[in-house]
Design a protein around this nucleic acid. Structure first.
Lengths: 343, 343
DNA sequence: AACAAAAATGCAAACGTTTTCATTTCGTGG
DNA sequence: CCACGAAATGAAAACGTTTGCATTTTTGTT
């Protein structure tokens, strides 16, 4: 077997035109603006295209009209419950518009993000979705200079430079904390990822602190635990936390993955949820509902965000205007399941 | 704000050439074959490019040399523990070669897969990776006719039409079943996804049945349970299974997700793992190691597969030849954790 | 310093579409 | 059946690169 390096056999618009006995212009129109060509002609062309196995070359078209039909999506990581749903929804929605998706992950490395944005720009994407608001100025400049539509996904804020669609992470965090406070908990441990270059985690942390302050609850320094985005590590940290004598009555986790780890830690240590300890997460990932007991958490509608973002981005690309709603908030929803109880 | 529909401002190779006082050919070479141009000239050009904010247009280049620098990856679903790792690794490896990834999911719908392949072909991808061996003839024909390198990922078989890289799913299933049999279990329930258009699940099922036959163990029809790829559903089915009087001593799950569901079902029903029941999965997904007790399963190295596949595909595209090893098997590894014990 | 060989650069023709403008064909009313 | 406006089609010029070939410059040798 051998793959020709030249793709010589591939018929182009020219061959189709010859076979159908029309000009290449008409063939082009048959595929890009079908109703500009008379049905009989169109049918002849379509048949010729079929017989030759013609597949249109969008790269060539893009060269001329500067629209590639491809949108970029840049996420911190693909390998991860949260973003997977977002990605899938984004991609599926794009399909409705006959667009494709170039995707890349930067692993929370802003320099790599710059390289990625550049690489996407080299492919002349029609628009780009970035997770969150923390981005290198270089990236934003490149995008702005070329007038490429940008949308920030996942997080929501009232006033932003670029359009966004997402949930209010501050509010979400406050909601779960209030829920825990309402149940009477006062000795609350906080397991949160590093908030370095991650506005979502930062917003959540801020929300938590705000709500605690309002309730006049103080948190001892050793109750504020930095925990990476990793079940194993979360489990380890929580085992340590709950096995000692000074066990908190509740744990607020920065996301559901950490909460899962906390669950397993409690199973391992024989600590009963929610009788001995209440646990809440943020995100409502796949599986959270089916943990035993179900995880109390707040649902951030990832699919909805992905779908809306794709729609908005396509609209921006098509119209050249910002989306109808510049700052689009999607509602988060507290899922009160079995992992929390009154103290 | 407004996004110009014409991207007028964007400088091209021509502007860079003018500013650097060289011909466009030299500018082109500076970016595509840097060591063909003398360092002083190159530096002048690079500076001019920097000052203008030039970003090369690969679509235009692709038009000429028929290589887009983009590879396609088609998976059943993105939103899913298994493929997420594969995707991420594939994408990361591609980055090493300065290639990008177009990805799409078909949700186990072969017709949609055809549409996707076509769409990718319209973007003139340099190669494509497909999950498994079950594909529509139409798709394969389109790819073959255009000499686009194809590789099958995830599953492994000895003799195949197209190159593949993956794990032997038959063997993997046999390994876990043998493990369960070795522990003395004879009343074994099987929870497997529908094997319709899914060669991986089919191979696993076959492996299970082979091993049971060899051991002369018969499985009652009601012990062979069809279970979708869904934690909630798995949990429901297993609760039913273990709550009755005729509880099996072991459950073999078609994948780790189902196993997770089985775990939660046992937690809910107060059935102790592994004392009351042994559970094994296939796949070793994220989190499986940290369940309590740890899930005994067989590790299918998703990241390794993705990485190798990307490398092979790039090589195929570059050389025009099949990869060095046409049928590449990656080793699976039994992870004997706490969820199994002797009967 | 002169010359040949090698290396660097320039010129111009592709690559496969889309689109503008001109031309032809079609449908309709008189 | 003709004339007319509208609709469909065709001709040709882009789009921004890459690359084969020709030309110029550099390098190395004597």
């Amino acid at each position: 077997m051998r793959y020709s390096r030249s793709r010589k056999g591939a018929p182009g618009i020219v061959e189709v035109a010859a076979r159908a006995g029309v000009s290449i212009a008409t063939v082009s129109r048959t595929f890009s603006q079908p109703d500009m060509v008379r049905p009989p002609t169109r049918m002849r062309i379509e048949q010729a295209a079929d017989e030759l196995g013609y597949i249109r070359n969008r790269a060539a078209g893009a060269l001329h009209n500067r629209f590639s039909g491809t949108l970029g999506l840049v996420v911190p990581t693909i390998d991860n419950a949260i973003f997977a749903e977002l990605i899938e929804a984004f991609s599926a929605r794009l399909r409705d518009f006959d667009r494709t998706m170039l995707i890349a992950a930067h692993g929370y490395d802003l320099d790599l993000e710059v390289a990625i944005v550049r690489s996407l720009l080299e492919r002349r994407i029609d628009g780009i979705a970035l997770v969150g608001f923390d981005h290198a100025a270089v990236s934003m400049n490149m995008l702005q200079q070329r007038d490429v539509p940008v949308i920030s996904v996942w997080n929501f804020r009232e006033a932003t430079d670029i359009p966004c669609v997402g949930a209010d992470n501050v509010a979400a965090a406050r909601t779960v904390v209030r829920h825990v406070l309402d149940l009477g908990h006062r000795d609350i441990a906080l397991l949160f990822p590093d908030v370095g270059s991650n506005d979502r985690a930062r917003d959540r942390m801020n929300g938590v602190l705000q709500e605690l302050r309002i309730a006049n609850v103080t948190t001892a320094p050793d109750r504020l635990i930095s925990c990476p985005y990793d079940i194993g590590e979360a489990k380890r940290l929580v085992r340590e936390l709950v096995s000692g004598t000074r066990r908190p009555t509740a744990i607020v986790c920065g996301n559901d993955i950490i909460a899962h780890g906390a669950f397993y830690a409690c199973y391992a240590e024989g600590v009963r949820i929610p009788d001995d300890i209440s646990i809440v997460g943020i995100g409502d990932f796949r599986g959270s509902a089916h943990l035993e007991p179900g995880l109390t958490t707040i649902r951030l509608p990832a699919r909805r965000i992905g779908s809306i973002a794709a729609g908005s981005l396509v609209q921006m690309s098509d119209t050249g205007m910002p989306p109808d709603t510049f700052n689009q908030q999607v509602a988060s929803e507290l899922k009160d399941r079995g992992s929390t109880t009154a103290v």
